[in-house]
Write a protein that binds this DNA or RNA. Sequence first.
DNA 1: AACGGACAAACTATATCGCTTTTGTCCCTA
DNA 2: TAGGGACAAAAGCGATATAGTTTGTCCGTT
Lengths: 163, 163
Amino acid sequence: MAEGFSSKQARQIVGITDRQLGYWRRTELVCPSERTDGGHARYTFQDLIALTTAKRLIDAGVSVQRIRKNIAALTALLPTLDRPLSEVSLMATGDVVLVFHGGMAFEALSGQEWIFPVAELQRQVEAVRGDAPEQGELFAGWDMQQQADTTDRDGDDPLAVAS
Amino acid sequence: MAEGFSSKQARQIVGITDRQLGYWRRTELVCPSERTDGGHARYTFQDLIALTTAKRLIDAGVSVQRIRKNIAALTALLPTLDRPLSEVSLMATGDVVLVFHGGMAFEALSGQEWIFPVAELQRQVEAVRGDAPEQGELFAGWDMQQQADTTDRDGDDPLAVAS
DNA sequence: AACGGACAAACTATATCGCTTTTGTCCCTA
DNA sequence: TAGGGACAAAAGCGATATAGTTTGTCCGTT
């Protein structure tokens, strides 16, 4: 039984209130995967990830209601997923949640695909004329890790996303 | 005067209607940077980029009104920008426009930065325990380059933009 | 061809209202 | 300490009505 994390531990680690943890459990947003013999909650590692993801989305301005809808939409869209909040990569603010999966980015709710390319656009216009675009790197490698630079080059960088 | 592109050329290259080009000019969404002696419009190369960006945003489901607001917000947020539509990297669908600039992603309208990263999250939780997450790649390498083009994919595309 | 004007249809945005969800506080039981 | 219940403030949502934009079509001028 030393397996999971207690409610207290969970909420301290994740940074949410007692009330939230409880409500989320009762309403099945995130439930503890295990129980003590006495029936008390025990959150697994994966549960913590789910909790943290929820917390993050909330901090990003996504309402709990919206999170629920996104989960529903996601499980419908990607049936293989069992627990979206802990199995998928999300990115969000306010009322949009983007999902990164299988090399694509799309909106969970609508399933509408997002992103991409700039290069094409440039070429398209260039084709009309012999005009030369300034530099070569259209997509500045947008690396989460080393997102140091870019700040130097003023203005524009095209770009893309991430991983 | 052989400088820029005529209205007709511009709208053919960009793929918008006569009416749109005119309206956008009159309402200052995108104006020709130059004029013929006779006072007729001459769109520069950069103008075409701006036009194309606008077109792309529209195709991605962003309304013209929203584009205007985003431009306003962007120039307020990044005063160095003169013409957001042709100087910045955008990505969008429906009602959200994401701006990539200086290694960050944020919503133009609100200025709110986008959240992301799951990896970090994983580490955070892992730190609490020695537990090992299943795989390595959370964000499947999302590489623009190798994501073939999308032009072939049928008609309406979600999409995104840039520049 | 480029542009403008008038008019109408299609589309977007904004504000509002009633309803539901979420969270906090306080208290109780095991 | 974990968890439940009751209650209320706060936040969020969906539908709707109203006002404002954008675009197409038709016509006229330069």
